[in-house]
Design a protein around this nucleic acid. Structure first.
Length: 208
DNA sequence: CCCTGATTCGC
DNA sequence: GCGAATCAGG
């Protein structure tokens, strides 16, 4: 996997958005392991995970040469809260569709976890679950490079809201965003929202 | 069972 | 550096 700047940017962005590793992985067409691994290597802030993995390690040496002291630096990298930019729509969580996922972990998030598309996706959701595969096409052309917007915090500053679904490869002349009128409370238009908010139940397989 | 994320280890 | 495998908690 070639982690280009764009990819990394996306990873960071999505990570900062509070998406699940699996979610990010799906959207980047990579495994969650890759996401987590890279995230760690990048030094991204680990999000609330229930695991702690300490003590027992059958596979590893299980020895931790911890350094005693020193001066207790207490580094405070400060929380990555630049504003989440782009998509942050404090919308009321859809009541009925919460069945699929949306654990309480991200419930506190102002944007809540996507992973659930209203109405239209609901019906499709059931079917999709059975299918287990992702029938919906990934980001148009190719699930390779998306690029949210690392330096474009205000998508709707002077103009109306625009669907920010990436079209083309970032860096290429033809790259642009959808631009269509998004669904209220969502960063994408109705068309792209359907594919953007993929249900779950599909990870290591399907897209290869 | 499913989901989730973290760490470790072989490549 | 990369990610699969594995571990681990809800």
């Amino acid at each position: 996997m070639e982690w280009s700047e764009e990819i990394i940017a996306q990873l960071k962005d999505l990570w900062a958005e509070g998406l699940s590793t699996a979610e990010i992985g799906r959207r980047l067409s990579i495994t969650k392991n890759a996401v987590v691994g890279k995230a760690h290597r990048l030094g991204l802030p680990a999000r609330p995970s229930p695991i702690r993995r300490n003590g027992s390690k059958p596979k590893t040496a299980a020895d931790k040469p911890e350094q005693p002291t020193s001066t207790a630096p207490t580094p405070q990298p400060s929380a990555p809260q630049p504003g989440a930019t782009v998509i942050s729509a404090p919308q009321p969580v859809a009541p009925s569709l919460a069945a699929t996922t949306a654990p309480s972990t991200v419930a506190a998030q102002p944007q809540t976890s996507p992973a659930a598309a209203p109405t239209l996706a609901m019906a499709e959701d059931k079917a999709a679950k059975k299918e287990k595969t992702a029938p919906v096409a990934r980001p148009s052309t190719k699930p390779k490079t998306l690029l949210r917007s690392i330096s474009d915090p205000e998508p709707q500053k002077r103009r109306g809201p625009a669907c920010c679904w990436p079209i083309g490869d970032p860096g290429t002349p033809g790259f642009h965003f959808c631009g269509a009128t998004p669904i209220p409370g969502k960063p994408y238009c109705e068309e792209h929202a359907q594919i953007a908010y993929v249900r779950l139940r599909d990870r290591r397989d399907s897209v290869a």
